[in-house]
Amino acid sequence: MVFIIRRLLQAVLVALVMSVLVFAGVFAIGNPADILIDPEATQAERLRLIQQLGLDRPLYEQYFIFLGNLLQGDFGTSFVFNRPALHIIFERMPATLELAFAAIFIAVVIGIPLGLWAGLRPNAVSSKAIMAGSILGFSLPNFWQGIMLILLFSVTLGWLPVTGRGPVGEFLGMRSSLFTLEGLRHIALPAFNLAVGLLALVIRLTRAGTLEVMPQDFIRFARAKGLRERRIIFIHLLRNILIPVVTVVGMSFGGLIAFAVVTETIFAWPGMGKLIIDSINVLDRPIIVAYLMVIVVVFITLNLIVDILYSIIDPRIRLEEAGQ
């Protein structure tokens, strides 16, 4: 219990520090009045709008107002949409979440089998080709991959649509483009583009785990008992190599959400990433701050959950904390 309370206090402190950094960094950039106010507006109209937006107050006063509103769940009102910033982000969040889940699904379903193959046959030409492909997955810029995918599958072959989310379907009360065939066609390219980096990581982790586990005694004992190779691989081997893979995939979820900006911009995917780019272009500060704080909370929450789960799985972590 002490371990959990300490982690919760650390999470609150990190969130508070990040709120200061995010707010100061965003509000130190440009003046949204220069973009939002008509150049032909009178000085009185300009001053009235600046006061209405609260831009005439000192920066520290704006922060304390923001922090007080934040504790009440109010992230401010968008300068452009004239609506609560958090509501706008939550409207765009489902599109980003389904893109991130689709990317994780692609990375796991493709990456684990390829990593297993590369680990079980490390000297085969196909295995070396898989590892070379994983290096490319780490190395190639995400925006370039997206452009090449569009040129190949949309422009040249005409198989998949270029932009947009596609029609949304409903299943068990949930609405998502993943529940329609046309929606799946729309998400295929952006999801694969977002998944490439994680796919390469899953391949390498799976291969490394396979190479480490296969020579161990319990695998030899299973073979000596006459178990089929398929059973050894899918029961004994996978059980031991999936723990680090699942951990990395889980921790990568927040990163996929945060770094979906490039993919969403290239494919005009109507998620939070495209929203933040559009908001930066017009200096819509409440949207920018709310988005960054949501991402901060996502990362802190995921780290907190992982720490708590590790302390439950391995009590030595709690004992080490208590001994410090």
Rank of each mutant, 00 (worst) to 15 (best):
residue 70 L to A: 03
residue 70 L to H: 02
residue 72 Q to A: 15
residue 73 G to F: 10
residue 74 D to W: 02
residue 75 F to R: 04
residue 76 G to E: 00
residue 77 T to V: 15
residue 77 T to C: 11
residue 79 F to W: 04
residue 79 F to T: 00
residue 82 N to A: 14
residue 82 N to W: 02
residue 82 N to L: 12
residue 82 N to V: 09
residue 83 R to W: 10
residue 83 R to A: 15
residue 84 P to L: 12
residue 85 A to W: 04
residue 86 L to V: 15
residue 86 L to K: 01
residue 86 L to T: 04
residue 86 L to R: 00
residue 87 H to M: 14
residue 88 I to V: 15
residue 88 I to D: 03
residue 88 I to T: 10
residue 88 I to A: 04
residue 89 I to Q: 01
residue 90 F to I: 13
residue 91 E to S: 10
residue 91 E to F: 04
residue 91 E to M: 06
residue 92 R to H: 11
residue 93 M to K: 01
residue 93 M to D: 05
residue 94 P to S: 12
residue 94 P to I: 09
residue 94 P to C: 03
residue 97 L to N: 02
residue 97 L to W: 09
residue 98 E to R: 08
residue 100 A to S: 14
residue 101 F to V: 14
residue 102 A to N: 06
residue 102 A to C: 11
residue 105 F to T: 10
residue 105 F to W: 11
residue 106 I to K: 00
residue 107 A to W: 08
residue 108 V to N: 03
residue 109 V to L: 13
residue 109 V to W: 08
residue 109 V to P: 02
residue 109 V to D: 02
residue 110 I to D: 02
residue 111 G to T: 01
residue 112 I to A: 01
residue 113 P to W: 12
residue 113 P to H: 11
residue 114 L to M: 13
residue 116 L to Q: 03
residue 117 W to Y: 15
residue 117 W to C: 06
residue 117 W to T: 07
residue 117 W to F: 15
residue 118 A to P: 11
residue 119 G to T: 09
residue 121 R to A: 14
residue 122 P to S: 06
residue 123 N to V: 12
residue 123 N to G: 10
residue 123 N to M: 07
residue 123 N to T: 13
residue 124 A to C: 02
residue 125 V to W: 14
residue 126 S to I: 14
residue 127 S to Q: 06
residue 127 S to F: 08
residue 130 I to F: 10
residue 130 I to W: 00
residue 133 G to V: 10
residue 134 S to W: 08
residue 136 L to F: 15
residue 136 L to P: 09
residue 137 G to Q: 07
residue 137 G to R: 03
residue 141 P to Y: 12
residue 144 W to M: 13
residue 145 Q to A: 15
residue 146 G to L: 06
residue 147 I to K: 12
residue 148 M to P: 07
residue 149 L to W: 01
residue 149 L to P: 00
residue 149 L to G: 01
residue 149 L to S: 03
residue 150 I to R: 00
residue 150 I to T: 06
residue 151 L to R: 12
residue 152 L to F: 15
residue 153 F to K: 02
residue 153 F to Q: 05
residue 154 S to N: 11
residue 155 V to C: 10
residue 155 V to H: 01
residue 155 V to P: 06
residue 157 L to A: 10
residue 158 G to W: 02
residue 159 W to G: 04
residue 159 W to D: 03
residue 160 L to W: 05
residue 161 P to E: 03
residue 162 V to A: 08
residue 162 V to S: 02
residue 162 V to N: 04
residue 163 T to N: 13
residue 164 G to F: 09
residue 165 R to T: 06
residue 167 P to L: 08
residue 167 P to C: 09
residue 168 V to E: 04
residue 168 V to F: 07
residue 169 G to Y: 08
residue 170 E to V: 15
residue 174 M to H: 09
residue 175 R to L: 05
residue 175 R to Y: 05
residue 176 S to T: 11
residue 176 S to G: 12
residue 176 S to Q: 06
residue 176 S to Y: 06
residue 178 L to H: 07
residue 178 L to E: 07
residue 179 F to K: 02
residue 180 T to S: 13
residue 181 L to P: 00
residue 181 L to D: 07
residue 182 E to M: 11
residue 182 E to G: 08
residue 183 G to R: 02
residue 184 L to R: 09
residue 186 H to R: 05
residue 187 I to L: 13
residue 187 I to S: 04
residue 187 I to R: 00
residue 188 A to Q: 04
residue 192 F to Q: 01
residue 192 F to D: 08
residue 192 F to S: 01
residue 193 N to M: 12
residue 194 L to S: 07
